[in-house]
């Protein structure tokens, strides 16, 4: 009986992670230039983020589970940002877009207010480099986060600091290649085979 229940639980974990990954609700949080590209990718019709289930942009953190940090964070914004993050329900994920949120970017030197790296304030899952990152790059970052969530890596563990992953578009990648990859990703990850997923689970194999 115990074996049965653990079998169900791990499958549930899989299904939950799959559901979470495919219904990310971002918070409309933009401080500067990257916010425009975020709007271009999330809501505008060309780069439709709803293909990834992540288009329901919420204005309040209490309904959101993905915080896309778009733009420079300065000292004065650090406190409100922390409050926003704390208000989001678990599990919550953070994508930091743009050079400013990664390292301070163009405002690293000789600036008395810019926070050099948003991960000094809140834990970040995925960094998306660019100044500002193209919508394709942001979509690539969201795809990376989805893969992380599905493998259980980004599962929100309270008080546990993870190292952020940098999701840069591979150099020399053309738009056609990227579109092909996105199409393959959508095809492969839009459905889940529960039995297969459960049997492929490493933890299960070790047990039996």
């Amino acid at each position: 009986m115990t074996g049965q229940s653990s079998y169900v639980l791990t499958s549930m974990d899989r299904i939950m992670n799959w559901a979470r990954a495919n219904s990310l609700w971002p918070l409309a949080f933009g401080t500067s230039c990257c916010a425009i590209e975020m709007m271009m990718s999330s809501m505008a019709s060309r780069h439709d983020l709803s293909r990834f289930g992540a288009e329901v942009v919420r204005p309040t953190p209490r309904q959101a589970d993905l915080l896309i940090l778009a733009g420079t964070i300065v000292k004065r914004m650090a406190k409100p940002l922390r409050v926003l993050y704390e208000q989001m329900p678990e599990p919550r994920y953070v994508i930091a877009t743009g050079a400013c949120t990664i390292s301070g970017g163009p405002f690293t030197y000789n600036s008395y207010t810019t926070v050099r790296g948003a991960d000094e304030i809140i834990p970040v899952d995925v960094f998306v480099p660019g100044c500002p990152p193209r919508p394709e790059a942001l979509i690539y970052g969201i795809m990376t986060l989805q893969k992380m969530i599905k493998t259980g890596e980004a599962y929100g563990q309270p008080y546990q600091r993870r190292r952020p992953i940098t999701a840069a578009l591979p150099p020399g990648m053309t738009q056609a290649q990227l579109q092909k990859e996105i199409a393959e990703f959508l095809e492969a990850h839009a459905t889940i085979d529960v039995d297969k997923a459960a049997h492929n689970n490493r933890w299960e194999k070790e047990r039996y």
Partner: peptide, 14 residues
Amino acid sequence: LGYIHRSIEKMAEY
């Protein structure tokens, strides 16, 4: 104001 004050004028002096 000041939630995105990035001190551009100070940086421009360098």
